[in-house]
Design a protein around this nucleic acid. Sequence first.
RNA 1: GAGGGUGUGGCGAAGUGGUCAACGCGCCUGACUGUGGCUCAGGUAAUCGCGGGUUCAAAUCCCGUCACUCUCCCCA
Length: 423
Amino acid sequence: MRYAPPKGTYDILPSAPGRDAVQNSALWQWLEASFREICRQYGYAEIRTPIFESHDLIHRSVGEGTDIVAKETFDFVTKGNDALTLRPEGTAGVMRAYVSNRLYTERPVSKLYYIGPNFRYERPQKGRYRQHHQAGAELLGASGPEADAEVIALACGFYARLGLTDLKVKLNTVGTPESRVEYVKALRAWAEPLLPQMSGENNRRFAQNALRMLDSKEPQDIALLVTAPSLSDYLDEASQAHFTAVKSYLTTMGLPYDEDPRLVRGFDYYTHTVFEIQSGVLGDKALGGGGRYNGLIEAVGGPATPGIGFGLGLERVLLALEETGVAFPKTSGLAAFLCPLGEAARVACVSLLARLRSEGVACDMDYTGRRMKVMLEQADQNQARFAVILGDDELAQGVATVRDMLTKAQETVPLENLSKALV
RNA sequence: GAGGGUGUGGCGAAGUGGUCAACGCGCCUGACUGUGGCUCAGGUAAUCGCGGGUUCAAAUCCCGUCACUCUCCCCA
C-alpha cells in the first residue's frame, strides 16, 4: 500500500525543480525569513501557540454563524473527552495565549507575530488547501487609528519586500457592536420581504449571520443589495472619526486603498476597521486580510483590550509571486564538497570533514565511493563553491587539491590551511 | 454543497481494440583507469489507479469504485 498525503495537504521538499513552488522548502525559508525580518523592523515579536485549541474557544471567537466555523473546522474529541479544534485561523489562539499568560500585565502594548499552519475542511483547489500556512501579526492594547494604519502597512510592506505588485487594499469599517446591532436589525427588516428573490446562501445567512449577506457574489443578490440600507448610516460619530483617521494615515503613508462598503469579513469578532488585500494576478483572490477586534480579548476572558491584526496566506503569496514572474532567490550551497579517491583518502576525509565543520565551514563529502566524475557532479548538485580532491598523491604530501567549481581553477593547499582557502 | 476534467516508469507525456506499451527528463554504465555542467553509445525502471464485464484479443469499449485536479460557493 502506498500512501498519498491527505487530501488538501502536500509535502514540502528540498529544492524540487519541476514541482509546485509551494513544495519547495527553500522558498518557505525565504518567505518566513522575510516576514520575520519585517516584523522585527516594525517591533513585533514572535509568539507560537498550539495548532489545536479548545472547540469552544475557536467556535465562539470566530463566530458560530461563520462559514469557517459552521462547516469548515476539523473538530475532534480526545480520549480524555476534551473537545478540540484544529485552528482555522491564527488570531483566536494568540488572544487565548495573551490572556492565559497575562501578557497584558507586562506592557501596555503588545505586538506579536506568528507563522504557522491553519486547517479548514474544504474542497481543495488552486491556492486552497486543508492545511495552509499563514503569517500574521496582532497589535494589542492600542485603540487609535495609527495602530490600524501600521498593521495594514506591515502587511503591504511584506508583499512589497517580496516584489509583489498588482495588489489592492480593500477597506471598510463595520463600526461598534452596538451600532452593528442596530444596522443588522435594519438590514433584516429590509431583506425579509426579498428573501424569495435571494439566493439560498443568502437565505441561510439571513438566519445565521445577516451581515454577510452583503458579501454575496450571486448576481441576483448583488442586484437587490443596491437598495439595502448602508452600514455607514448607522455608525456613531466616534466610529466614523476613527475610520476617517485610518484612511488619512494610509494616505500619508502613501498606501493606496479602495473603500468597499460591502466588504464584510468571515469572522464575527471584527469591529471598526476591516481590510482585505487582493491580488490582481490571482483574479482578485484574497492574499490576506484582517481587522480590528476590540471585544475579542474580553470575550476570551481577558481585560477589555483593543486589538487589530491580520493573517496572510503564504501559499497564495507563492502563487502570486509565481504568476507575477518574480524571480525566486537562489539558495546558497556548500562551501566545499570533499572527494576522496581510495580508502585511505576516505578515512582521512571523515576527520577532515569533522574538522572543517567545527571550524564553521559548510561542507559535505562523497558517500557513494564512485568515480571522480560522479563526485564532482554531486559537488555541483550541492552548489558547492569548491571541490576538495584528496587522493593518495595529496595524502602523501599532506595537501588537498581545491577546485573552484565555477572557474575550474585548481590549487594545492596544505590540509591545515584548508578552511582559509575555502572562502 | 454543485458542476467539469484527468488517472500510462521517479517526473512529463504518446498511444482510442491486434506482435516484446513510443519518446523526453531523471537515474545508472561506458567513451573519459584521478576532474562536473556539453556530446555520444548502452542500460534501469510501468502487473497502463483499482475491481468487474464485453471480446479470440482491452491502456484502448462498458459498469462500478477510488484518487487527484479545476470551477462555482466560501475563504488565506
